[in-house]
Design a protein around this nucleic acid. Structure first.
Lengths: 205, 205
DNA sequence: TAGATTGTTAATCGATTAACAATC
DNA sequence: TAGATTGTTAATCGATTAACAATC
């Protein structure tokens, strides 16, 4: 991993890699900055600058070697060991991303927790538990990252339980402010704020 | 609505309002910039600047009148009519935000679509449909905003169907790039990119 | 009054884009 | 070669934070 990458660059590197993994690079092994830029709708200069930051160089004529770039991005942003991930009460959203996980990434979904209904298998290799088993499973599996999207009512209690485990990062979809120590990295996503923003901009065109 | 508000300011205004609606303003009708800033973890100067942009003034001694501020934020970022919202295949995440909707906002959840399982009632006043009925319902209900979180497999087809309706804004949780015309406002959220970012920063502390 | 807060401008910070010499 | 692309610096743009006069 490279220290001191700007947060947005890390996000984009993740995007570059996912796009490239879906790219027919067996047939077309090189890609130019403007084409890669187009795939994620940014400026070509941006691509070149990001790749410069991870010290990846291309060929003036052919562009960037896709296979090598995929590897390089891995070396730049993946951590050394496999990190386990749990989805907590996120339902369909889990299924949305499941096809990518457990395949080409250092992240691995190992558990899904539900607040309602008797748990049932959703995808192969991923166990589904009732939320009451969360603490035990988080600890036993050594889960480090969680996606948290439980109803507001549960948020505080669940986040306090999370603090008693080895979880180091929370992607927080609840609109509740999580009062966790500095050692846990929280990335908030406020869906309502985004919807109201969406509402604003769809009405000002 | 006010034109030319920076996107981030719009998001923050939405956050201010939600925090204030949960604030005991019957007992404590005024709030200072530093307290409001603390509630959403930003700088007090930021609050004052945002409120300046919507032309809201406070009292040097007492701070900001909460009730008036809630109203003013509504005038600044809400559109004139009620906009309907559908959740498409988002499962629990819908329930997460449902308690706020249909209450204090100009946004109203009116439909939930599922790609799997026979539809069943999830919350009162919100109908749940199978995805095959989506187009019909979107049109009949005049739905303008959707939250899209279907499995990758469905994403292209569903987004093409959406284009045949009156939908003006899409909050896109699929990692698929939606090829929609300029008249539709798309806000992408890439959960995998966020997780990989989370992974990066939890490992570089 | 003294002290604290607002409103607003200026400074800082970070992220994006432009520009262009170097390269093949 | 001529033309196109890379790597990199500088310029621009936007968002955040600092600073402080005005106010009560």
């Amino acid at each position: 991993m490279i220290q001191d990458l700007p947060p947005n660059t890390v996000e984009r590197l993740s995007l570059y890699r996912r796009r490239l993994l879906n790219f027919p690079y067996e047939d077309e092994p090189y890609i130019h900055s403007h084409k890669l830029a187009h795939l994620i709708k940014i400026n070509p200069a941006h691509v070149r600058r990001d790749l410069m930051l991870i010290g990846f160089t291309g060929d003036v004529h052919r562009g960037y070697d896709i296979k090598r770039l995929i590897t390089k991005i891995g070396e730049s942003i993946d951590c050394e060991h496999v990190q386990k991930v749990a989805f907590i009460g996120i339902g369909d959203l889990g299924r949305t991303v499941a096809d990518y996980f457990n395949l080409k990434t250092k992240l691995k979904i190992v558990a899904i927790f539900r607040t309602s209904e008797p748990p049932k298998e959703q995808f192969k290799d991923v166990n589904c538990y009732h939320i009451s088993e969360m603490k035990k499973v988080l600890i036993e599996e050594g889960i480090e990252l969680v996606v948290l999207a439980v109803p507001k009512l549960y948020a505080k209690e669940v986040s306090e339980t999370i603090m008693e485990t080895n979880v180091k990062g929370i992607l927080n979809f609840t609109s509740v402010h999580l009062d966790v120590p500095d050692t846990i990295y929280v990335e908030d996503y406020d869906i309502i704020a985004k919807l109201e923003k969406l509402s604003f901009f769809t009405n000002s065109l």
